[in-house]
Amino acid sequence: MLFVAVCNIGWDGFSPRASYTITLVAIGVVAVGCTVQQASYYGFTGSLPPRYTQAVMVGESAAGFWVSIDRILTKYTFKQPRRSTFMFFVFSILILLGHSMLHHMMMRHPLVLHYLRLTSESRHKRRILLHLNPSQDNAVESQDGESSYGVLKLQSPAPSSGLGK
């Protein structure tokens, strides 16, 4: 994004065709990065209680809303298309830097460290569990009565009562 903002929009040292190609490649790189980031956050929240997955989903929605507001404000504030686009990229880059700092701060938070430790301990027990019940906490009790975090528990369906046959 920084390359596009500085070299492609601010400097204008490329032909329109090259500029278009550079922008498309940058969009592709950002899209791949967003995919990895989204998968990483959902994987990360798998170590936390289920209510935190909803926070990630709300954050993604808020990010989309912010991008729209950012573009509307920069387009309204700066009348020249080149300047408004440049400022959109500048504001977006600043927001990304701010979110990166917040992420690093969050990774040091005691609550996150607690659940990451529990997940790590559960993985070292080498149990394969699958439990997909969103109404329960992410703690799954094993056969020996210990709680496992961030693991999946294989659970067979409840036996039918035979009344409906």
Rank of each mutant, 00 (worst) to 15 (best):
M101D: 02
S100H: 09
S92R: 04
R71P: 01
K75H: 14
E141R: 07
L102H: 06
P110E: 12
Q136P: 03
L154G: 05
M101K: 02
G150Q: 02
L94F: 11
R126Y: 06
H99P: 00
R71G: 06
K153N: 07
H109G: 06
P159E: 04
Y115E: 10
P110W: 12
V90S: 05
L130C: 10
S135H: 04
P81F: 01
S156C: 02
F86H: 12
R126S: 10
S161Y: 13
F91S: 11
R126K: 13
L118A: 09
P159S: 07
R126C: 02
L96V: 13
S135G: 03
S120K: 01
G162M: 07
R108C: 00
A139P: 00
P159F: 05
T119C: 04
T119N: 08
E146L: 15
N133V: 15
Q143C: 05
R82A: 02
M107T: 02
V151H: 03
G145H: 13
I93V: 11
S84H: 08
T74Q: 09
H104R: 06
L116H: 10
G98N: 12
A139D: 00
V90F: 12
M87H: 03
E141G: 00
Q143A: 14
H103W: 05
T85D: 01
L154H: 07
K165G: 13
F89P: 00
